[in-house]
Design a protein around this nucleic acid. Structure first.
Length: 587
RNA sequence: CGGGGUGUAGCUCAGCCCGGCUAGAGCGCUUGGUUUGGGACCAAGAAGUCGGAGGUUCGAAUCCUCUCACCCCGACCA
């Protein structure tokens, strides 16, 4: 492509709307253009990147025997009503009615539709397993879209669904997909961490998320540097410290006056103690039973873990519940409650001394309370993991990472096949529900993730398989006949070698062209300038190009090459990269 | 959905508090010229119903009311 006739409109100014680097650079490089909140145009450059990512995913899906389909984006409500998600996913669905008044929805995900398809055809164990996937637009009316492509309301997702006769078969496919995902991220040179995850409204018991560590993300996970266990904070199990507990009531309780200080945050600011000097007490209700949950002040209760531990889903208590217990919201505590209720403490409470707790009296807290002064029924792992928590496996200390989720894989079981009546006849002649798995990748989000992973202030850094072009040609002075002719020849030679090239053939000053090369993020750049009079052109290398590759080309920022060596050298680099990065294909 | 913020030229913003004359700057764009290894220079020029509606006023970008859009922080997700 020639710059002068291509669709490139770079901008020097930082867009006022963009807060994170990927959003900002995608806009500045004219990769995307916003149409509405969370809704973006992919411009020619952006679409080129999207298709690159798309292609890698397709190749890896095809390789594990998955078959590509394309399902509609518009769905009638009935299938969604059958699975109950017409209600449970209501808040993110774009719903509307057609002319006849039939309720319709723009697809948020496709479990219902794919299960419908498979239920029509796969009637025998002989037809299974089946792996079907698509790369398609999803619509989610997110409460808050964010960060450009990071969370959009219309976005491109790869969704794969697998159908099996047995859990053993599902487990095998789950592993295949896991491996395929690792190859996808390797080929895109995205450093991912795989973490155990919560399966949420998609369903299923086991799931893994593929995360990239970045502040631009919306998730958090902990990882144990000692044994490698990693899990999203929603599910991360925390080890218990080896501390004995024997209840010893405190004789004289010391009250402190804490007017209107109801939250830990307010208390910390006012009293000047650390968050971890407090014990947070939260009152839950399950049926007619009350449960008081205690957690160290710097920690949060994890309701997912709490529900799992209790085997039910307690709800937060209301104002009148506090009164019934002779307490008051904001000042509730485990000591001197009017009624004996169940008290569960998180492991983080073990060993706490001289803590501050609610006194069950408006505007008062108790101080100097030790953990053993509290009558605790049970200790359990019910808090969100934070930095420094104990690894439940090896007793190492967790590190907390901010992360962006790029992929998520689930074992669904029969959550969808039963309500949608996707049954097959097994060898034994019996009718059984199909066992399912589902596996997503945020295709458009990956684009942002690559930028977040490698890019700096004014410069994108694409990876080998994601860059819209492999090489950029700068003709320093386009009016110089010699420079022009040589540039044109190089351009044509590269095209004939099938190397994607963008030639900056504009009548602009050199600085402008160098800045554009950097902003656009293309790995290599050929500079055709004055050195041409000595028969030399320069080959420049994006200094941020992922160094994880064992390739010495990238030790230097530029090479002076004779014209005769240039194309050979570029071909050699290209083929080496291709072999090293895409070579994992050839097993 | 709660809290905070912003809408003025293609982009980034000033002007608004304290109403006043033809609404400004930089970048970008157009034309001509000079330049050409790190966002060049000179000259001339085009470009804005000040997000929208209503109101107050002799007079509104500026004050008031309503409204729309977008962004940021929190609970959900690829």
């Amino acid at each position: 492509m020639k710059y002068s006739s291509y669709f490139v409109f770079t901008s020097k100014e930082k867009p006022s709307q963009a807060y994170n680097i990927s959003h900002s650079l995608l806009l500045r490089g004219s990769y995307i253009l916003q149409l509405a909140a969370g809704i973006y145009n992919f411009l020619p450059l952006g679409f080129r990147v999207l298709k690159k990512v798309w292609k890698i995913i397709e190749e890896e899906m095809d390789r594990i025997g998955a078959l590509e389909v394309l399902m509609p984006a518009i769905h009638p409500s009935d299938l969604w009503e059958k699975t109950g998600r017409w209600q449970t996913m209501d808040d993110v669905m774009f719903k509307f009615q057609d002319k006849k008044g039939t309720k319709m929805v723009l697809g948020t995900t496709h479990e219902e539709i794919i299960t419908y398809i498979v239920s029509k055809y796969a009637k025998s164990y002989k037809n299974l397993p089946l792996l079907l996937y698509q790369i398609q637009t999803k619509f989610r009316d997110e409460i808050r879209p964010k960060g450009g492509l990071i969370r959009a309301r219309e976005f491109i997702m790869k969704d794969l669904y697998s159908f099996h006769t047995s859990w053993e078969c599902l487990n095998k496919t789950y592993q295949d997909v896991y491996d395929a995902y690792m190859r996808i991220f390797q080929r895109l040179s995205i450093p991912v961490e795989v973490v155990e995850a919560f399966s949420g409204p998609i369903g299923g018991d086991v799931s893994h998320e593929f995360m990239v560590i970045t502040d631009a993300g919306e998730d958090k996970f902990v990882k144990c540097p000692n044994c490698g266990y990693a899990a999203s904070v929603e599910v991360a199990k925390i080890g218990s410290r080896n501390i004995q507990y024997s209840y010893t009531p405190k004789e004289n309780l010391n009250k402190i006056y804490t007017p209107d200080l109801k939250t830990i945050d307010q208390l910390v600011k006012s009293i000047g103690k650390k968050e971890s000097d407090f014990i947070k007490s939260v009152l839950y209700k399950e049926g007619n039973e009350y449960i008081l949950v205690l957690v160290r002040g710097d920690k949060e209760i994890n309701e997912i873990k709490l529900s799992k531990y209790l085997g039910c889903e307690p709800v937060l208590a209301k104002e009148e519940d506090f009164e019934k217990l002779g307490s008051v919201a904001g000042f509730i505590g485990p000591i001197n409650l009017r009624k004996k209720i169940k008290i569960i403490a998180d492991f983080s409470v073990l060993g706490l001394k001289n803590a501050i707790i609610g006194a069950n009296e408006k505007d008062y807290h108790y101080k100097d309370v030790d953990y053993e002064n509290i009558l605790i029924d049970e200790f359990a792992d019910i808090s969100k993991a934070i930095d420094g928590d104990l690894c439940y496996r090896c007793r190492g200390y967790y590190k907390l990472f901010p992360a962006l989720e790029l992929g998520h894989i689930f074992k669904l079981g029969t959550k969808y096949s039963e309500p949608l009546e996707a049954y097959f006849t097994d060898k034994d002649g019996k009718t059984k529900p199909i066992i399912m798995g589902c596996y997503g990748i945020g295709v458009s989000r990956i684009i942002s993730a690559i930028i977040e992973a490698y890019s700096i202030e004014n410069s994108i850094t694409w990876t080998f398989n994601s860059s819209p072009f492999f090489i950029y040609i700068i003709t320093v002075n386009i009016d110089d006949e010699k420079q022009f002719n040589i540039s044109e020849k190089i351009y044509k030679d590269l095209l004939s070698e099938n190397i994607e090239v963008l030639w900056d053939d504009r009548k602009e000053s050199p600085g402008t062209k160098f800045k554009d090369w950097e902003l656009l993020g293309i790995p290599l750049c050929i500079v055709v300038g004055n050195k041409i009079n000595q028969g030399i052109v320069e080959l420049k290398i994006n200094s941020n190009f992922p160094k994880t590759l064992p390739m010495n080309y990238f030790d230097r920022s530029f090479y002076d090459l004779s014209l005769s060596d240039l194309i050979t050298k570029i071909k050699q680099i290209y083929l080496d990269l291709d072999r090293k990065i895409n070579g994992i294909m050839k097993i």
